[in-house]
Design a protein around this nucleic acid. Structure first.
Lengths: 106, 106
DNA sequence: GAAGTATTTGGCTATATTGCCAAGTGGCCA
DNA sequence: TGGCCACTTGGCAATATAGCCAAATACTTC
């Protein structure tokens, strides 16, 4: 694989990788219902606020979410709602795996 | 987040995470054009065969690809082609980021 | 300006991932 | 059986990631 191609796939992978974490996937799912401030998200996840902030930074740097400061709060929202399409596909991957596991067990 | 919910998002994330690597993304893209044996993929990527094999194992364990041994070769193919939909979304995320970067620079 | 709230950043340790080499496995053919 | 080929597995070192605490920043309100 030549360096140009490699870079192309690496940069695409960076976006996907940003979604590849349980907490961040949850954050994306929650943001699909509308913008949320960090403290609301922290409440929902139940981790340290610094942890949530760092996860949100990963999503922001990947271009998946946008942040907007209002007063002393920061509101996050989805920038590309198409990432929600991942969920359906993931479900079908897991479904297929489960189905095959059952069939193998017979 | 309660343990059940956490597990749900963690297992979904595992599938997405499997795609979150440049080489694996390339493998998926290549497999979208049809089944390939490990040595063909190795040729294309240009890494050690053991490295390719391990990447394929990650994709297989995530349920994204299937392997089939024929003779002394192992052929891999996509099990859930819906993962290809990720590409279009990733492009649009990167497009949006790039657009915004340009606008901020003005 | 001081104090309070919301968030980010720095720094650290624990853990996970990556990629190579070497060794093991299984099928094919002489 | 012996050797070869395709592939997987084990093991290791380098690097990246996760999550906590503490400290810094930013905004608001008094």
């Amino acid at each position: 694989m030549d360096p140009i191609t490699r870079r192309k796939y690496d940069s695409r992978a960076r976006v996907i990788k940003a979604m590849g974490h349980g907490t961040r996937l949850f954050l994306v799912d929650e943001l699909s219902r509308g913008e949320r401030c960090v403290c609301e998200l922290q409440e929902l996840v139940g981790a340290d606020m610094s942890t949530i902030s760092k996860h949100l930074a990963v999503l922001r740097e990947a271009g998946i979410v946008r942040d907007e400061k209002r007063g002393n709060q920061v509101f996050y929202s989805l920038r590309c709602p198409c990432v929600l399409n991942f969920f359906a596909c993931v479900e079908s991957v897991m479904q297929t795996s489960a189905t095959q596991a059952v069939e193998l067990a017979r």
